[in-house]
Design a protein around this nucleic acid. Structure first.
Length: 361
RNA sequence: UGGGGUGUCGCCAAGCGGUAAGGCACGGGACUUUGACUCCCGCAUCCGUAGGUUCGAAUCCUGCCACCCCAG
């Protein structure tokens, strides 16, 4: 009779390290696993190697075995290709959401089950609550670190196999635990950037995979005010990188829209421009963690939504219409970008979400 | 080659004899498991150029250069 085995996805950061530590202390048969899902040969090799080293030393410190798995192929086929396709269409995808549904909690979860683990744990700041056959996803206890936004598309079958040991903790508590336990990465800086790919000069990175064709930057009336080197490198609401200075009334310029057909960026001066704000959006193929929408098809229900990670909750009314959902906000939202996800909440409960398709005033 | 005007950071623009505002752009940092937004810091020893006046000039004077406008 042995303890239940749990696989912990180790990134090299403190959060997953503490997750592994806590599970070990709780008596689980913990196995640390490092995922290497990206490989572009050279430049990023160093940080990936550092992360791997951190995983090794953390696992040694905690006293658990560790392995490395490689889902480079899966990541490329199921996440990165979509990522590029979306950018090619002029949209702004969120690869990390897909990475969770397709890689971490699918390919990787299956790997964990295959080596006889009963669950997969990660260092995500979110909570899973299971009661009488139902699963709920709750925000992380630390409002400043909550990552439920990235997990909203998981299915109940996936969530029921998942543990988030640090989800009920504050970041400061996680760091304190790491320090007390003497974990080698206790003070390691939080990582950002696309998961598994890391922090990059975004436009330069994209141009390695998508042809960057120079084009005009125009105002909504068609006046050319600048030029860009590939409009896929910009997103709605973006200010930096336009290189337009000294024109008009002196205020900064923002991207209002992208005209992929004509390879043009449409911009306006001042972030109070009406075309930068919309109070309604339509998103496709909504998924709900409970398995069904809070209200029947065609019936409106109130909710709180996020258009992007770390955005404060926005009060709204939603209505599912066939394979899409229409969200109408109480207050207009800035720079709603097709390709990004709208995620719905009811208090601390994450209901689900959908990928934004279009907006309306 | 008659007249008038203008030349200050990549762009726009203060300054009007007392020793170079500000905005945009850009660079760096903070924030951040997407892309963005936001915030903070930095950014002309020098004012088209050569002289002159003055204790002292980007600010006054003169020559030259460049551009613009009106005349031709």
């Amino acid at each position: 009779m042995t303890e239940a085995r749990v696989v912990v996805g180790m990134s090299g950061g403190v959060d997953s390290a503490v997750a592994a530590l806590l599970l070990k202390q709780q008596g689980f048969d913990v196995v640390g696993v490092f995922m290497k899902n990206w490989d572009d040969g050279n430049d990023d090799a160093c940080t990936a190697a550092e992360d791997h080293d951190d995983v090794r030393s953390v696992c040694d410190h905690i006293g658990i075995p560790y392995y490395t798995v490689n889902f480079t192929r899966e990541y490329h086929d199921r996440v990165f290709r979509y990522f590029l396709d979306e950018y090619a269409k002029g949209r702004t995808p969120n690869p990390d959401i897909l990475c969770n549904t397709e890689i971490k909690f699918d390919a990787f979860l299956n790997f964990a089950l295959k080596i006889d683990a009963s669950a997969l744990a990660t260092g995500h700041y979110a909570r899973v609550e299971q009661t009488a056959g139902t699963v709920r996803l709750l925000r992380g206890a630390d409002p400043n670190k909550d990552q439920s936004y990235f997990l909203h598309a998981l299915k109940p079958e996936q969530l029921s196999r998942v543990l988030f040991p640090v989800g009920s903790m504050l970041k400061s508590e996680v760091r304190a635990v790491a320090r007390e336990a003497g974990l080698p990465n206790a003070e390691k800086k939080d990582s950002t950037g696309i998961c598994f790919i890391g922090e990059r000069d975004f436009r330069a990175f994209l141009s390695r995979y998508l042809p960057a064709t120079p084009g005009d930057i125009v105002t909504e009336s068609g006046t050319v005010v600048g030029s860009h080197e590939g409009c896929m490198g910009y997103t709605i609401g973006q200010r930096k990188g336009l290189g337009i200075g000294g024109k008009g009334d002196g205020r900064p310029w923002f991207v209002l829209d992208k005209d992929v057909q004509r390879n043009r960026l449409i911009v306006a001066q001042g972030d109070d421009h009406p075309l930068l704000w919309s109070s309604e959006l339509v998103a496709l193929n909504p998924t709900f963690i409970s398995g069904r929408a809070p209200a029947p098809d065609g019936v409106s229900f109130r909710s709180a939504a996020k258009i992007r990670y770390r955005q404060p909750d926005q009060a709204c009314a939603c209505v599912v219409e066939g394979s899409s959902i229409r969200v109408t906000f109480d207050r207009p939202q800035r720079a709603v970008a097709p390709g990004q996800s709208v995620v719905l909440y009811d208090g601390d409960v994450c209901l689900g979400g959908a990928v934004i398709e279009s907006t309306a005033r």
